[in-house]
Nucleic acid binder design. Sequence first.
DNA 1: TTTTACATTTTTGAATGCAAAATTTGGGAT
DNA 2: ATCCCAAATTTTGCATTCAAAAATGTAAAA
Lengths: 221, 221
Amino acid sequence: MLHEDVVGRIRAILLDGEIPPGARIPERELCERLQISRTPLREALKVLAAEGLVQLLPHRGSRAAKLTDKDMRDLFEVCQGLEALAGELACERISDAEIGAIAAAHDEMVRHYREGDLIQYYRGNRAIHEAIVAAAGNPALAGLYTSVTARIRRARYVTPMTPQRWALAVKEHEAILNALQRRDGAGLSHILRAHLRHKREEVLQAGFAEMEASDLGLRIA
Amino acid sequence: MLHEDVVGRIRAILLDGEIPPGARIPERELCERLQISRTPLREALKVLAAEGLVQLLPHRGSRAAKLTDKDMRDLFEVCQGLEALAGELACERISDAEIGAIAAAHDEMVRHYREGDLIQYYRGNRAIHEAIVAAAGNPALAGLYTSVTARIRRARYVTPMTPQRWALAVKEHEAILNALQRRDGAGLSHILRAHLRHKREEVLQAGFAEMEASDLGLRIA
DNA sequence: TTTTACATTTTTGAATGCAAAATTTGGGAT
DNA sequence: ATCCCAAATTTTGCATTCAAAAATGTAAAA
């Protein structure tokens, strides 16, 4: 089972920022590193290109996809739409157990907020959004969501999280959980859109910068 | 430039239903037919698998993706979400010229409706929805939309379009155009969701059946 | 007659090889 | 010294080849 892993491993390399956006992807080097020949590597690159993580230039090799400001805005919009949809669907289908799990994750996230642990907060935040998408019970939706968030996360950036913004985000999350518990699909959809719009403004206002693989792992959740 | 076309050609073969859902994809045969070797063909199959049109079974080759009823429902939901998002965005950005073009397409579609030409009606219907997505000015969104609609269209079916349903669809399209012209994003989003929900009910109620490549070309628009 | 074990054939997955295109390098002219 | 053009090298794209896994067919035993 070779080609299965290869896509995942290269995706990880890209997401880790080991190959920075816009940089050439050296086929021969990667072949040696992964101990595979060019055939499965090239197959994997084609798949990743279809996912939008890699750009293929005819006779000029492949590059790690470079996202412009516009690309980021576009992806955020799509992400927003997908999350809003997931929220609506989740409200129709989510089980009490799933709500309980999300509530627990929420409480933990709030704890990290109170402790001022931004990294753990982000992790918890991301887990909640993914749980909502999972609760929608729609694999096709989940797949697209994964793909889109991967592309967004691919472009690393540091967001200057001000206390005000952070407080707002937490407040929005309270509302998100509340809407979920009331199974208020329309309301949740609305809140999620606002939530992500704020996140987007925050990010795009700051611009985004590439970071080293050894960075703190700050990511958009 | 070979590999560019190969994906498109195989996709066309799949969309045309020449290889029915669930059927094995004979590598050797396709190679001879497309006059290419197995390497680019397999690369293309991997890409199509990432798109969801092809299933790859380890050591057992590739099959044309077979969509279950649940898969169809899921895809319709996603399509709905994407169209609703596109509608909202389009209202913010669409130019008068674009609205004019859509209005013209709408009138033509209504003409086909009056003439009872279902096939041409479907064609126009699809063109309108694609124009709205295009007017959203979001290539990432457009790409996902194309992929999702391709998968939906992949599963061919005959919808028993009753006069009532058809009339309702046309009425909804009037509302769609109206909301666009008023640039009422929220309203358009709402209408589009209802529109696609009706379409979905229509389709899933009927179930879907595979048809020959030589069929009438009835497709979900 | 049915079933199971084994050999053959086919097909898949990956490595290698080869031709074409692009990048790099070196030399000469302005 | 700089610019430009051509040869050499590298890299890409595809074809071919090779090994392994699955499918198929056959024969023997129950």
